[in-house]
Design a protein around this nucleic acid. Structure first.
Length: 560
RNA sequence: GCUCCUGUAGUGAAAUGGAUAUCACAACAGUCUUCGGAACUGUCGUUCCAGGUUCGAGUCCUGGCGGGAGCACCA
């Protein structure tokens, strides 16, 4: 529809002698103004050297001629806007399509394109906390929105299974003489203990640093199946067990959240390749030696210097990300690579991508880092090192608990809980921080996930109760506000994809849910006037809400 | 110190440069014999400051003030 209007306005402008005008077709803030508006008259005023309002009047005449029956009303307004109100039949056609066409809200403009998208990224040997939830929820929503554009999406997550945090956790486990790890929180506790010891005791620091390099060696040896000493085999076995327990916990959380990854990459998969690429880059002058470490001088590109390989010869996160870029290319080459992480890592990725640009320009070119804001506590930033975190498990558990008050069925309680959590994150533009207050952030009323689910469940219930067959012939003269809003869905999805802004969908769904609730309160559906037509509208609403929720990765309950 | 992000009702947020700046929570007043009240209707209340660009600025530019993050061997 928007496209059609754009062409009509373009043609009218050509006839008026201003074909180069850059104009917008937009939705007026107030539906009373119409379904669409254009600023074409204002934008072309300077080119034509005429009063905007006068041009608007001309445009009205031309659009009336070209649009014919599609529009019910076209008029000039305000400083020179042209407002277009669609005919009810034009709207009816679209909402009928919404209710019946399986591809409602999907596009094909990215068909044939493949995208690999990395998100979540919890680290084994640390607990998965609500910060990772943010990455997961944003990443999953973006993946689904990309799929709706026709793209093939490959999901991956990347976790640090080697490095100082692993050494700290294993060191503490070994000190306690634990050889069989029961659950993820046991590892989380060990990590905190190891971190504290690392900071407080020079001896412990030395031991942990040594253990760190040793783990790198053991893991590398294990990969090339060299023989290991008895103690090394113990460390390897504890390491394997720790990683396994962590990953099981992650899998449990991912399942609740509705994410499934095509690839799970580990630091240990990327170190060897990363190191060899960086050493090769050193020989080519891309990297430099400094104080025993191998660094990249970011200053030459207005960035800062970061260490890629430490003076002890271990790779840092930077080198691992370089290795990962190559590993992804090798395992599954895609047209585009997206990496979603917290915003605090922008500096890191700027440097990594700058270095990668010198090493492998094509790889760097197709890679984009998309940051999301931090989930902070009212007490400040979370740090698993200090132990002041809320684990994903605790949060989801608490939410399921509160949702249980109204839902006896544990499955439904979980769906409601997940909706509340995801909505909290997806309601706002990505990039902004969320100060997480369990009391306030996770509402089950008003602007909330359950609000959307509730509107949907209610609509389904009314449709089920009616014995009338939906029929568009039963339409009242004027369209309901709800159906006018429903026609916007495909365009909203497109915008959300283009701007990588899933919150546009969240906001839209909140709007139509509110409108549905008003409609429901004001208009009797079953046994009311125009029942057959109202059912068409209700069906379109149900389909749009289901589709929209699923794009956000929010569960669609049957009842609640 | 340098770099990046950010400043919108009491609170949390929204607004491709467009019309009277939206939405929720909170507060207050209603709807209560319902097609499911996790709902609906109404009241109250907002763009940090000073310039500039523009027909038009919360949005873009410059300066100031406040908040946050990053800045060599963590991830």
């Amino acid at each position: 529809m928007e496209q059609l209007l754009r062409e009509a306005v373009q043609k009218a402008l050509e006839e008026l002698g201003a074909p180069e005008t850059v104009f917008a077709i937009e939705w007026p803030a107030d539906l009373a103004h119409g379904d669409f508006a254009t600023n074409a008259a204002l934008a072309s005023a300077k080119i034509l050297n005429r009063a905007p309002r006068e041009i608007a009047e001309d445009l009205v005449q031309k659009l009336k001629a070209s649009l014919g029956d599609l529009a019910a009303r076209i008029e000039a307004a305000g400083p020179g806007f042209v407002n277009i109100t669609l005919a009810h039949e034009t709207i009816t056609k679209q909402i009928e399509n919404a209710g019946t066409n399986e591809s409602w809200g999907t596009h094909t403009y990215n068909t044939g394109k493949s995208v690999m998208i990395e998100y979540s990224n919890p680290n084994p040997f640390k607990e998965i906390h609500i910060g990772h939830l943010m990455s997961n929820v944003v990443g999953e929503a973006l993946s689904r929105v990309l799929e709706a554009s026709g793209a093939r999406v490959v999901r991956d997550t990347f976790g640090g299974d080697v490095g100082p945090h692993v050494a700290k956790a294993l060191w503490a486990l070994r000190k306690k003489g634990i050889s069989d790890i029961g659950n993820a929180s046991e590892i989380g506790a060990a990590y905190i203990q190891g971190s504290n010891a690392y900071e407080q005791s020079p001896d412990a620091k030395e031991e942990i640093d040594a253990l760190n390099t040793r783990i790198y060696d053991i893991v590398a040896a294990q990969l090339s199946s060299e023989t290991l000493s008895a103690e090394d085999r113990d460390i390897l076995s504890l390491w394997r067990k720790g990683r396994e327990v962590s990953m099981e916990e992650f899998a449990r959380i991912f399942k609740i959240l509705g994410t499934s990854f095509d690839y799970i990459f580990y630091d240990s998969d990327t170190t060897k390749g990363g190191i060899s690429v960086v050493r090769d880059g050193l020989a080519r002058g891309i990297f430099e030696q400094s104080e025993g470490a191998i660094i990249y001088r970011g200053e030459k590109k207005g960035l800062h210097t970061l260490v890629f390989i430490t003076s002890r010869g271990t790779p840092t996160y930077e080198t691992k990300d370089i290795g990962l870029a190559f590993l992804k290319e090798e395992r599954c080459s895609t047209d585009e690579v997206i990496i979603i992480t917290a915003i605090e890592q922008v500096g890191h990725f700027e440097v990594v991508l700058a270095a990668l640009e010198e090493i492998a320009p094509l790889l760097a070119k197709k890679t984009t880092h998309v940051p999301h804001g931090l989930l902070r506590l009212t007490t400040g930033k979370m740090s698993s090192r200090k132990g002041n975190i809320i684990t994903a498990s605790e949060l989801l558990g608490d939410m399921v608990q509160s949702a249980s008050e109204k839902n006896a069925d544990p499955l439904v309680a979980e769906q409601v809980a997940v909706a509340a959590v995801k909505y909290m994150i997806l309601r706002q533009a990505p990039g902004g921080d969320i100060v997480f207050d369990p009391e306030k952030s996770l509402s089950l009323e008003g602007d909330s996930g359950p609000y959307l689910q509730y509107a949907l469940v209610r609509a389904k219930s009314v449709i089920a109760q009616s014995s009338v067959t939906p029929n568009t012939k039963d339409a009242p003269e004027k369209p309901y506000t709800l159906e006018r809003l429903l026609t916007r869905f495909p365009e909203i999805v497109r915008k959300a994809e283009g701007l990588r802004a899933p919150h546009l969908i969240t906001q839209y769904l909140t709007q139509i849910a509110g409108e549905w609730n008003s409609f429901y309160a004001q208009e009797r559906i079953r046994d009311g006037a125009n029942e057959a037509y109202k059912l068409v509208v209700a069906t379109a609403f149900v389909r749009t809400m289901e589709r929209g929720l699923s794009l956000l990765g929010i569960p669609v309950p049957e009842k609640m």
